[in-house]
Design a binder for these strands. Structure first.
Lengths: 241, 241
DNA sequence: TGCTATTTGTGCGTATGTATT
DNA sequence: AAATACATACGCACAAATAGC
């Protein structure tokens, strides 16, 4: 029953402990592959396994030709109110950009199901990318049933704001009655890793928000957020009684 | 400037596409290391890199002696209301257990800072583990200032419920006025991976909830949730006008 | 029970490419 | 141009878990 812990786990956990203890601080360089070989008397591949494990845990980032460095979760705090409005907070100094691409497309099976449409069907689509300091932080795919509502043209506001959607529908006489939200997290796909330049070991937070007008779903937002940059924060007042 | 895509990325993305297309379904076995060698004319280590990449993306799980299988995100839907109450939904059939360990400990620097205490200080601690079908799904560390409130002894309710905390403080004359929540996601630590038996490529969702009575923080909950099992869901009614 | 074949896990050695300094 | 460091890749050996006989 002797369960021996593999060397690459032992070494990785030791470095991990140094990071947790503050002996290695964000930005610090950790020993390179050759150094690990000598320090712990392990082979090159095991040294690589150590670094790979730490990378996967999101503790370090590696740069070819330079080395591996303790990761920096440089969080940009955001505020969510009432499960609806997402707006940045405490980061007015950094330059934010928001790009919006509008189109009208055939609904995929998936989207048709979510919007309760029978195929084939056309829907309006908005692809929004929120960039902060040249880093894409958040990508939103927003789909709406084709009604007579004005198009989505408010790049100055945050696309995650449900209030905007609600107001726009209200302006054409469609009252959004409920907003449902599913929040989860997963590892990014290859495509997302490429698009958002996400380092290894960084998950994405996903929010799927569905707007209902009565029983019919009228709009759906799929929000994908880099978890190492964005913190979803909320504050709620409690009434006595 | 020729940027060649590495073989292990090419092969992994091809299998990833098969999973996305539904050609490989959850539970299906993917080609083994030796098979990948032959199929794509690659070496053993590259075949391993392919599998490692897919594992890291949370798309497959590997079992020694059996093979690698398409992962199954077997979500247990949960409901969050008003950012306070977390309760399970749609899963009354599965057997849930909740273990609670109560203690009184010295506050760590971290906790002391969050609760605005000056060291040394004693705090009451509750370590709660929510298990579902023998799988630990959620671990909560809950700290409270030492007041005269009754101890936390309600294993029948979900420890994430802020209302419970609020009521208990109210019963001793301390009115909780605000609840702050920070939600994020990250890869699990080695310890968490071991404790909760989390497979590779599965992040955890973290919720840090702080209860304030006026300006003083009185309780803090640190909730850690397996992201492949739990979905945080909310529903909100919109009032017209 | 024991044996064997299969499959992944761990580990070693080596060579070459590419980015950085 | 040279040194350094990570990235990709090949080949090999043995351990450990699994499944079938």
């Amino acid at each position: 029953m002797m369960s021996v812990t593999p060397m690459y786990v032992v070494v990785a956990d030791r470095i991990s402990a140094q990071i947790a203890a503050g002996e290695l601080r964000p930005g610090d360089r950790i020993p390179g592959e050759r150094e690990l070989e000598e320090l712990y008397k392990i082979s090159r591949n095991v040294a690589r396994a150590v670094i790979s494990r730490l990378r996967q845990q999101g503790l370090i980032v590696s740069r070819q030709g330079k080395g591996s460095f303790v990761a920096n979760r440089d969080l940009i705090r955001r505020l969510v109110r009432n499960g609806q409005e997402f707006r940045p907070a405490d980061n007015t100094e950094v330059d934010q950009t928001l790009t919006v691409e509008l189109s009208e497309v055939d609904a995929s099976n998936d989207i048709a199901w979510c919007l309760d449409l029978s195929l084939p069907a056309r829907v309006s689509k908005a692809l929004m990318t929120w960039t902060i300091g040249n880093e894409p932080i958040e990508v939103t795919e927003h789909y709406e049933r084709l009604l007579d509502q004005p198009p989505i043209t408010r790049p100055e506001t945050n696309p995650m704001n449900a209030p905007d959607v609600i107001k726009r529908f209200a302006s054409i006489g469609t009252q959004v009655t409920t907003v449902e939200e599913d929040t989860s997290a997963r590892m990014p796909t290859s495509e997302e890793t490429h698009q958002m330049a996400i380092p290894q070991g960084v998950p994405v937070i996903t929010v799927e928000r569905t707007h209902h007008a009565g029983d019919t779903p009228v709009a759906i937002s799929r929000i994908t957020i880099r978890a190492d940059r964005v913190l979803i924060s909320s504050k709620q007042d409690i009434s006595a009684g």
